[in-house]
Design a protein around this nucleic acid. Structure first.
Length: 559
RNA sequence: GCUCCCGUAGUUAAAUGGAUAUAACAGCGCCCUUCUAAGGCGCGGUUGCAGGUUCGAUUCCUGCCGGGAGUACCA
């Protein structure tokens, strides 16, 4: 199948050459499907330069566009758009392609090596809904890159040393260890309480906790080491159970304790060149570059996050020589990431060139910023089980073989609903998290898309039972095939913009169109149209499944 | 104080400088003897305010108002 977008670009270029015109051709989707399948504003751009009527120029260009079997109609419309309509022949071929390529339909042919760091929870602290955001976005981006044909390595960077850990260990010293026989989840919860206690007292007990921090780095106090080792182990084991639920498998786990040693060395080697000493600390003067000053090694001689990240960049590249390194974090660290990237650019220019920082918005509750140091947090697992409960209420037990199948599907739906809530926003903006709304499984939601897919699935099962096979008898320019054929270009666009939200928007439009069709038309019937209608449904099911796969959302067989 | 981000329907959000600003939720009214009603159909905007650039501004620029984040040893 020829990429229609590229084809149209070529046709336009031919026409422009004939008219002795030159321009960057941008092809976009018209706002309304009724306008056509593709459109360009190239005539309006050129008309501005030449100071002639855009609509007249558009008409002249249209007159020079060669006939093409894939294009049914080209029109010039006010104020100067040129609209293209795909031919039924092309749409028919496209449907055939979907049915032939199935779960590979829409994949790209890129060949980059990409490492993407995300989630980054801190041992000793709760895995909260903020980590869920990072995980969901990072996982979706990973899949998006993979969908493009790239080789992707997933990395998780965990802060196993630092003031937050010292605070938690201090809290454990106060509270004692959790009771024998506590479950992993209970232990994790206990650690969360210990951290909240330590963080809350930090102002008052600063010197104590700072000292503890130093001891943990140096592993100099056996009693502290023992507490630290246990807590770290519980946290990491607990995180593993969460990743399994979320469907993430990391290739690399990095720890601050590793990046710190190398990072500190790099910083020290560059004193005088990039960094300077000030008040017993080693700092980077960001003001020279319109940024602000940040401490890379503190006055205790311990590396801060900035130095650790510097070391990590090098470690990552040695382990896996990448073409692109993506780091996903919350946007509250945007400013210091700018400082960090500037410092990286001065120390390792080649690495900085290949590094991109992507931030997601902050997760906010109606009561304000979610602050784990105040203990006012919603854990990922807590939210997930609340959602699972809502899902179970809606499920009809008669549809499922047994409780375990029902449970399994309920979890797929709960995870899907959560991921969707995060991914439907365009990246970088804050999300006001309304628990009630997140629990709602109607309207634009993950379950809506999953439901649409299962609906399509049961139509297909019915057709199979009766013995109707999917056949693309013809092509037609109705909404559904036109939307379906957009998928490869939509996936490419989402990748270019690093924006899974583009996939979400598209899937909602496709699902809406299918559900409308489903309500209007009886698909499996005795008519001669039936094989074609079944083919359409099959293509819808395939494309929704492929799209949800990119988002990291599973498609339940029924619900 | 300074730097960055944001302000769109009652609410939450869409919209590479383009066509009639797009959805969902909440509200009202319809549609299950049909393949799953977690569905479908119908009914609403001074895009915070004031200027500017442009054939064209939610989008770019300036000022103001309002919200958030960062601003040297946390991340």
């Amino acid at each position: 199948m020829i990429n229609p977008k590229e084809n149209i670009k070529k046709l336009l270029a031919t026409a422009l050459t004939k008219l002795n015109l030159k321009a960057d051709i941008i092809i976009e989707y018209p706002k309304l499907l009724s306008h056509g399948d593709f459109s360009t504003n190239v005539a309006m751009i050129l008309a501005k330069e030449k100071k002639i009527s855009p609509l007249n120029l558009a008409s002249s260009i249209v007159a020079e566009i060669p006939a093409d079997p894939d294009i049914a109609e080209v029109t010039a419309v006010a104020p100067g758009f040129i609209n293209f309509r795909l031919s039924p022949k092309f749409l028919g071929e496209c449907l055939k392609t979907i049915l032939a390529e199935k779960e590979k339909f829409g994949r790209g042919k890129e060949r980059e090596k990409i490492i993407i760091e995300y989630t980054d929870p801190n041992p000793f602290k709760e895995f909260h809904i903020g980590h869920l955001m990072s995980n969901t976005i990072g996982e979706a981006l990973s899949r998006l890159f993979e969908w493009g044909g790239n080789e992707v390595k997933r990395a998780c960077y965990q802060g196993d040393v630092g003031i937050h850990v010292a605070s938690a260990v201090w809290g454990l010293q106060e509270l004692g260890l959790p009771p024998e026989g506590a479950t992993l989840a209970e232990k994790a919860q206990f650690l969360g309480r210990a951290y909240a206690l330590g963080a809350g007292e930090y102002e008052k007990k600063k010197s104590e906790i700072d000292l503890l921090n130093k001891k943990i780095y140096e592993k100099s106090d056996p009693a502290v080491n023992a507490i630290y080792k246990k807590g770290r182990e519980w946290s990491l084991q607990y995180f593993d159970t969460i990743y399994e639920k979320l469907g993430t498998k990391f290739d690399f786990f990095f720890f601050e304790s590793e990046g710190g040693i190398l990072g500190k060395k790099i910083v020290e080697e560059n004193i005088g060149k990039v960094f300077e000493e000030s008040e017993k600390a080693i700092i980077f003067r960001g003001e020279k570059y319109g940024l602000h000053t940040r401490v890379f090694v503190n006055s205790f001689g311990l590396p801060t996050y900035e130095a650790k990240e510097l070391g990590l960049a090098k470690i990552k590249n040695e382990l896996y020589p990448y073409d692109l390194s993506v780091i996903v974090t919350g946007n509250e660290v945007n400013d210091y990431f700018k400082v960090l990237l500037k410092a990286l650019r001065l120390v390792f220019p080649a690495l900085a060139e290949k590094t991109r920082h992507i931030s997601h918005g902050m997760l906010r509750l109606s009561s304000g910023k979610m602050a784990s140091r105040k203990g006012k947090i919603i854990t990922a697992i807590g939210l997930l089980s609340a959602m699972k409960e809502e899902v179970l209420k809606k499920m009809d037990p008669a549809r499922f073989a047994d409780e375990s199948e029902k449970e399994k599907i309920a979890e797929m739906i709960a995870v899907g609903a959560l991921k969707f809530t995060i991914l439907k926003r365009s990246p970088g903006h804050d999300i006001i998290f309304n628990i009630k709304e997140a629990l709602s499984l109607e309207g634009d939601s993950g379950p809506y898309l999953q439901y649409t897919a299962t609906r399509a699935n049961s139509v297909l099962e019915k057709a199979k039972a009766i013995g109707i096979e999917a056949v693309v008898l013809k092509g037609e320019s109705h909404e559904l095939p036109r939307l379906l054929c957009r998928f490869p270009n939509i996936a490419a666009k989402a990748r270019e913009n690093l924006s899974p939200q583009i996939i979400v928007d598209y899937l909602l439009e496709l699902a809406g169109s299918f559900n409308n069709f489903y309500n209007r038309v009886i698909i499996v019937d005795e008519s001669v149209e039936a094989p074609y209608k079944v083919a359409l449904v099959m293509a819808v099911h395939e494309v929704i499944a492929n799209g949800l796969n990119i988002l990291g959302i599973k498609v339940p067989p029924k619900m």
